[in-house]
């Protein structure tokens, strides 16, 4: 059984829950265009997530749940509507501003881990610190090592992704997402490629991070994993059909 070990993620008082790490989607539409074809992925989505919440987004394939995550992280831009995350309107930002903003505020965990194959676990975990201008020196190594220890990989620092199991790779991805102590952590099917045992371990990790004050939003199509969340938002055909008791 995986235990969340090592140091605890600590925050200063102004970084803790309830101080601008909430998420607000208002009237969001998203249309994908491929040649002459248009695909409307989101239709007038309104969603509010409080700081410190642990929210699961569920729905069938193609329902728009991953698109909601992409809109929250600024990876995709809404065709219409407004998006406010961690106190900032991100739908009006340029790509460069968005990249900087993401580096400072958001941690992302992908379904297929998406580690950089030429970097070791430690180097992958340091990467966002460098993007944010904090990558040099012992402090960065210390922080990244701490995050890897936090996910139970203190003994795998110099391993390349190809030398790690799927579960270990996903934990490196979590450690990487924590590098800049993000206010919001989003995970897109974080356990999609893992066996059920390892999937539970990863989910426990996300729960522990949320307990320490991080707003966590994740997408899953597995009802068992949705149970870890405080609130489950259901999406279908680009619309939210159940807000899971949103205030």
């Amino acid at each position: 059984m995986l235990r969340v070990t090592g140091r605890k993620v600590t925050r200063s008082s102004n970084e803790t829950a309830g101080t601008g790490s909430g998420i607000e989607l208002s009237g969001v539409d998203k249309v994908y265009r491929t040649g002459r074809l248009e695909y409307r992925a989101l239709r007038g989505v309104d969603l509010s997530i409080e700081a410190g919440e642990l929210v699961a987004i569920v729905g069938p394939s193609g329902s728009g749940k991953s698109t909601i995550l992409n809109i929250i992280t600024g990876i995709d831009r809404p065709t219409a509507g407004a998006v406010t995350v961690a106190g900032e309107r991100i739908d009006t930002m340029t790509e460069e501003q968005l990249a900087a903003w993401r580096g400072a505020n958001v941690g992302i965990v992908f379904q297929f881990f998406q580690l950089i194959p030429v970097l070791t676990a430690l180097e992958n975990a340091i990467l966002p610190l460098e993007f944010n201008g904090n990558g040099a020196g012992a402090t960065a190594v210390e922080r990244a090592t701490g995050n890897l220890q936090l996910v139970g990989l203190g003994d795998r620092l110099d391993h390349l992704p190809a030398e790690l199991s799927g579960g270990e790779q996903q934990r490196v991805a979590v450690a990487r997402a924590l590098a800049n102590q993000p206010k919001v952590l989003v995970a897109d099917e974080p356990t999609g490629n893992l066996d059920s045992k390892t999937a539970n371990h990863v989910m426990e990790l996300l729960v522990a991070l949320n307990r320490d004050g991080t707003t966590v939003v994740y997408v899953t199509h597995d009802p068992q994993l949705a149970r870890f969340a405080h609130r489950v938002v259901a999406v279908q055909d680009g619309r939210i059909i159940d807000r899971g008791g949103e205030q």
């Binding site: 992280t73 990876i75 790509e95 460069e96 990249a99 900087a100 993401r102 580096g103 400072a104 992302i108 992908f110 998406q114 950089i116 990467l127 966002p128 460098e130 993007f131 944010n132 990487r176 800049n180």
Partner: peptide
Amino acid sequence: TREIGVLRSLGARSRH
């Protein structure tokens, strides 16, 4: 391309 997308998602600027 996908790797570039991941890097951008992690906060990489154009210069990176």
